[in-house]
Design a protein around this nucleic acid. Sequence first.
DNA 1: CGGTCGATTGACACCTTTCAATACGGGTGG
DNA 2: CCACCCGTATTGAAAGGTGTCAATCGACCG
Lengths: 242, 242
Amino acid sequence: MATKCANCPLQRSDVFIDLGEDEIRFMQKFKVGELEVNPGTPLLMEGSNSPQLYTALRGMGVRYKTLANGNRQVINFVFPGDFIGLQAGVMGEMQHSVEAKSPMTLCVFDRSEFWSFFKTHPERAFDLTWMAAAEEHFLGEALASVGQRTAFEAISWALCKIMLRGQALGLAIDRVMPIPFRQQDLADALGLSLVHTNKTLSKLRNRQLANWGDEILVVNDLGALADAAGMTLEPLMKRPIM
Amino acid sequence: MATKCANCPLQRSDVFIDLGEDEIRFMQKFKVGELEVNPGTPLLMEGSNSPQLYTALRGMGVRYKTLANGNRQVINFVFPGDFIGLQAGVMGEMQHSVEAKSPMTLCVFDRSEFWSFFKTHPERAFDLTWMAAAEEHFLGEALASVGQRTAFEAISWALCKIMLRGQALGLAIDRVMPIPFRQQDLADALGLSLVHTNKTLSKLRNRQLANWGDEILVVNDLGALADAAGMTLEPLMKRPIM
DNA sequence: CGGTCGATTGACACCTTTCAATACGGGTGG
DNA sequence: CCACCCGTATTGAAAGGTGTCAATCGACCG
């Protein structure tokens, strides 16, 4: 049974901006179904022209690009509340792929209705643009991490970011957060080799900054981790959801 | 005297989608003036809440972030037609700075009118979202370059990208393009040291792939350069302008 | 029980960074 | 007109962070 938008589980989290009644009705009309997938399932492929757009309700995944030489660049990690397919919606085709890394539940929208966002619901269109700008912001930070930080700092930064989102979403219970990613995913996100990523993770473990193993991330002192990353902890902004 | 939108020089380039008459009238109302700046002038600062948004009419610049350790990450290069300040427009404040690297002419818009895009001109709002998505796409590619390519490949990629845009915009005359950037700018964009950037550039020069010096970039064989970068040359999409 | 996947480790090669020094053009003040 | 300073580009040498190669180990699974 598809979840009703009125009962959207995401609305319970206070990192998301509350939708008005009218907006909820509109999204409900827009929603064509719900999708449950297993880890490893590809949701969108680079170059594809998918008729479907998604909002992640539960579970996690990765966005990535595959290069000519076979290398993979993980663009970022997908968490509940993330909108998937914006590029396909506005530009016609995806520029990266999206794959589930844990069991996921996704809200499915019909792309052909996409334009009606702009025509009839300007607030929703604005939210969409907001999300695009937020993504641009994140990618700018990621670029700075990959470009300017050492492996140690970059990994600290990434784990910090993940934990922050996890806490905001209620996925982290008291500094402990389950994450389905592999070390290779993190390595591909930061442009590091798997081996070096592994060794750096164990260094973080030795220094009691972060402990990631058995699909579980533990961070005792977020502040210390952020220091190690050379970043400043900023409170997350409230975000809209689709 | 400020240029009239009806005579917008950008509209002459065929990389940009033609605006309808109504749209031109609307943009004209939105436009509050024109700004001419010298190289080195900061246009927007990270964290600022600028009341002004811009479209680059002439000249080039850079977007960049400054990290806690003082390092600088150049997010990308600004060319004519680029919209500057989207983040401030939708999220309230800029997440990166923008600085002119050559003399620039900018179209100035009033941010307080920003919302009217969405309320009264859904096509314009859509174009804005399109541009945000395109930027997201570009940043994804940049991330892949910095993360997965060697210095030699990354620099080839960057010069290729620059030349492609230059040609599309008519800034490149027969494989020759003036660019006001410094080697340090490119180094900061790709996460490389200045010294290594310099040496890699001279390697490109030796191999007759690209010659950048005296503020001029010469690329004889774009295909060969793209090969060196391990990228595939794709025709630029037509883009909207604001 | 063999086979696969992910995590871990050690050794070694090498791409990049850092440190230093030189060169060259443009601007400025004496 | 010349000395001097500053930003940018170049080069050489040495140090070091990361990548690559290889082997081991534990957990899960048919």
